[in-house]
Each structure stands twice: as structure tokens, then as C-alpha cells.
């Protein structure tokens, strides 16, 4: 079996069979990660470039680890150390990579659509590791993997994404992926951080977190970027925490366990209180391990489409 596309650019429009295939493959890779010897020769001889035009520790490390576990030759460069700062256009950068006969490119960029652009100008498989506020498909996949592992299925689950949905690529990938797999998605946050017309995507919108808690199986709590306060999207972090923060006190009022996801890094006691982050229903560290497995699965399956 192979995926229907040779790139992973977005979860929007990705067939459920493709998603299922990636999630299933990740099970075996997670098993490998728990072995004493964690390396397999799957991508031996393949060269992968990690092109990170935007700061990222977590995602880049996760991809690098996944690539090395699969025995690929790995080259990583960050924007600050690349020629991008010298005024080279993205297209020039891409063509240079192409000239070096790279097999796969993992790209993170602060503008939406850059992975699409790259997929049109070069021949390598492109994996979107986050493009602006558009999508972060491997994060969406690892969140779905984590939820499926926890609940046994995705169909019929109700997941609420909490916080800064407007600027979040994680939110978009979760919405598209989960909906395809039959889950219900709601969002909750201040009206200023909810994108226009998101209800037209079949998403219910909440502005009071206590209204949504009794209805959901899981919360995916987004990181609140500190600079959004300066941007005037909400009055203060204190107020945000008070009205949208996920706290033990709030969760205790609901008579059922709610699984807590967070893409990291966490602002403790802003969007998520420390006791919830470290609490029994938090799967945040599980997400990190699953992230490596999912990325191995994606790399393996895209490599296999050649």
C-alpha cells in the first residue's frame, strides 16, 4: 500500500485511508522505539534535508530523530545559518537543494503555503513541518494517534481545541484530520482569537470553557504566544488564565476524566495549570514519543511511494 500523494502538505482533503495507514504504521514504529536497539535500515541511502526557516526545537528534534532511526542521511539547517538571510529567495534555496539530489525535504516556514510552493518547484518528497498559520500535519497526526491509542478509536470522539485558534496551524490540522476520521471538533477561546467563519467548517464555537467541558472527551490546549497580548488580542495573561485557562479546579467540576493534549511548549499556569499538565489525564509526554513514531511512519510511507 502507498499513500495517494507523494507529499505531506496538509491534512485537509487527505483521504481517511491514508490517515489510517499512517496511524497504523506508526504502531510498529513506536514498538521499535521501545526496543533496546532503536534503529532500522528502512531509509538507508536516502538523503533528507530539514529546512527550518522558523525556530523550532521540538519538531526539528523529533524529525531528526525519526530520520536517524530510519537510517537516512540527514542534513539540517536553520534560517539563521542559511543563505536566506543573505536575500536568497525560497525558490533559489529550493533549486540549490534540488541540485544536490536530495530525496526528501522537511520544511518549516513562517508563511502559509510555502510547502505547497516547494512541492511545485522541486522533485523531492515534501513534508510540511508547519507553514505559518496554515497546517502542521504531523502534529495533527500525532495528536490523532495519541487519541486513538487512548480511546481505541477516533470516530464519535468529541475534541475541543482551546485557546489561540486564530494563529494556530495545530488547530487547523486537528480540525481537518479529526473531522475526516469521524470525530467532532469544537473550539473554545476569546472571540478575538477565533478565526472568521470557522463555524462554516462544521466546528462549534464556545467562548466559555465551563460550557464545553461536560461535552468533551479530550481537550487540545494550544500554547498562547506571549506576543498576542501586545497585539491587542486579549487584555492580559491573568485574565486569559482566569477565563480560558484549563485548571484542575475547572476539570474537577466535571464528573468524568478529560484527556489533556498540548503541542508544547507549555506556558505553565497560563493556558494550562501545572497540576493538570502533570496530572493523570495528561498525555503530553506520550505525544512527544508518538511524534517520533508518526514521523517515522510518514517518512517511511512517502519514501515508499517512489
Amino acid at each position: 500500500m502507498a499513500l495517494t500523494s507523494r507529499h505531506l502538505l496538509r491534512l485537509q482533503g487527505m483521504p481517511s485511508d491514508d490517515i489510517r495507514q499512517i496511524l497504523d504504521a506508526a504502531i510498529s514504529f513506536k514498538e521499535i522505539l521501545n526496543r533496546p536497539i532503536k534503529k532500522v535500515p528502512t531509509l538507508q541511502g536516502k538523503t533528507i534535508v530539514n529546512l527550518f526557516f522558523e525556530n523550532s526545537t521540538r519538531t526539528r528534534t523529533s524529525f531528526e530523530l525519526a530520520e536517524r532511526r530510519l537510517s537516512a542521511d540527514v542534513l539540517s539547517f536553520a534560517a539563521s545559518s542559511s543563505s536566506v538571510t543573505k536575500g536568497e529567495t525560497l525558490k533559489d534555496t529550493a533549486r540549490n537543494i534540488e541540485a544536490m539530489k536530495i530525496d526528501m525535504v522537511v520544511i518549516r516556514h513562517n508563511a502559509a503555503g510555502t510547502s505547497d510552493f516547494l512541492s511545485k518547484v522541486i522533485n523531492a518528497n515534501i513534508i510540511n513541518a508547519g507553514d505559518g498559520q496554515h497546517e502542521h500535519p504531523t502534529q495533527g497526526l500525532l495528536d490523532m494517534y495519541t487519541l486513538r491509542e487512548k480511546f481505541g478509536k477516533l470516530e464519535g470522539l468529541h475534541v475541543c481545541i482551546v485557546g489561540d485558534v486564530l494563529h494556530s496551524r495545530v488547530a487547523r490540522s486537528n480540525i481537518f484530520g479529526l473531522q475526516t476520521m469521524g470525530a467532532k471538533v469544537s473550539v473554545c477561546g476569546p472571540a478575538t482569537l477565533i478565526p472568521r467563519d470557522i463555524d462554516k467548517l462544521g466546528v462549534d464555537v464556545y467562548h466559555h470553557i465551563d460550557d464545553i467541558l461536560p461535552k468533551v472527551d479530550a481537550l487540545n490546549v494550544l500554547r498562547i504566544q506571549m506576543e498576542r497580548q501586545a497585539g491587542g488580542f486579549f487584555p492580559s495573561l491573568r485574565e486569559f488564565h482566569r477565563y480560558f485557562g484549563v485548571t484542575k479546579e475547572r476539570l474537577d467540576k466535571v464528573n468524568k476524566p478529560i484527556t489533556i493534549l498540548h503541542p508544547g511548549p507549555i506556558n505553565r499556569d497560563v493556558e494550562l495549570s501545572a497540576d493538570v499538565a502533570d496530572g493523570p489525564h495528561s498525555v503530553i509526554l506520550e505525544q512527544v514519543l508518538n511524534g517520533v513514531a508518526i514521523r517515522m511512519a510518514v517518512l517511511y510511507l512517502l519514501g515508499a511511494t517512489e
Binding site: 485537509q12 502559509a112 496554515h134 497546517e135 472568521r196 462554516k200
Partner: peptide
Amino acid sequence: NEGKVSTELGLPGIP
């Protein structure tokens, strides 16, 4: 344009 499509594409909108 700000609306459903800008929300899907993650591009900042002009209302």
C-alpha cells in the same frame, strides 16, 4: 479576503 477560505488557508484576512 477574510472569511472561510482565509481561515482554511491560515492566511491573515482583510475584512
